[in-house]
């Protein structure tokens, strides 16, 4: 597996972490009234979207590079 393929795997797992952290923050905020959790949750979900966009851009940029 090349660095290109491993990076794609890394981006996918990072995206999943961002989504999970976002929901964790919103869930934790529902128990209290912490504005920082709301900001962190929103930022994390925004990061997950940014990572998906980056992943697609990365794949297009390295179209000619092997996955092996």
């Amino acid at each position: 597996m090349s660095l290109k393929a491993f990076h794609i795997v890394f981006v996918i797992i990072s995206t999943l972490l961002c989504v999970a952290f976002g929901f964790w923050a919103f869930d934790a905020r529902s128990a209290g009234d912490d504005t920082s959790l709301l900001i962190a949750g929103s930022a994390s979900l925004a990061c997950s979207v940014a990572l998906v966009v980056y992943g697609v851009w990365f794949l297009r940029k390295l179209k000619g590079v092997s996955y092996l």
């Binding site: 660095l3 491993f6 990076h7 890394f10 797992i13 990072s14 972490l17």
Partner: peptide, 13 residues
């Protein structure tokens, strides 16, 4: 080196 670095970052994730 990049493969190693990605693994180390993945562990933290």
């Amino acid at each position: 080196t990049g493969l190693y670095w990605h693994f180390v970052d993945l562990v933290w994730i």
